[in-house]
Structure formats: structure tokens, C-alpha cells
Amino acid sequence: MPRAIVLNPQDNVATLIDTGEAGVACTLQGEADGTVTLRSAVPFGHKVCVRATPAGGDILKYGQVIGQASKNLEVGDHVHIHNVDSARGRGDKPGARS
């Protein structure tokens, strides 16, 4: 069973430390336990959603904001650049923090 680490109890993502195939249950370690079933393949080192998050909601890792969801996220979703936006260094985005 692939392993995924939750670094802070507030986090809504876990980091896989094994390769995860779609449909498999992944064991949570660290600041959470239980399992999460992967809705799609998640490569080694990538993140999986462990708490449903609406589009625009903060993505939390280390208990800190690492970006915002650009789509609604379900538990088990692969969380990466296709569904998370960064708020920093975004000269392309009017109104981004500067």
C-alpha cells in the first residue's frame, strides 16, 4: 500500500512517498491516519487531497498556505499545477500580491 505523509493536522494534502496507482488505497502517516483512495495515479512525491476543498480555497501543507485550488478538489484527487494556483511572483495576473 503506498504511503502518504500529512505534515500538519490542518493540511488538506498529503505527500506520497511511494508511487500511487489510480484506485488504490493509500496509507496516511504523520499527523493523520487512515487511508485515502486515489482517484487518479499520483507519482512519487506528488500530493493527494485528503479534505475536500472548493475552488479558490487555500491549499495547506506544513500548516501553511502553498496556493489556492483552481478547481473543486475531492478527497483522493492528485493535487498539482493542473488544479492549484500560486499567488506569488504573478506579474501575469493583475491584482496578484506583489
Binding site: G45, Q64, I66, D85, S86, A87
Partner: peptide, 15 residues
């Protein structure tokens, strides 16, 4: 970095 799973500069910075 992105291939290795880092999604944003914020995530990279915290690590």
C-alpha cells in the same frame, strides 16, 4: 521541481 511534485513557489520555499 514540478516533476518532483512541487506545485508552487510557496511550497518550495517552506521546504
Amino acid at each position: 521541481n514540478i516533476r518532483g511534485g512541487l506545485t508552487t513557489i510557496e511550497e518550495k520555499a517552506l521546504g
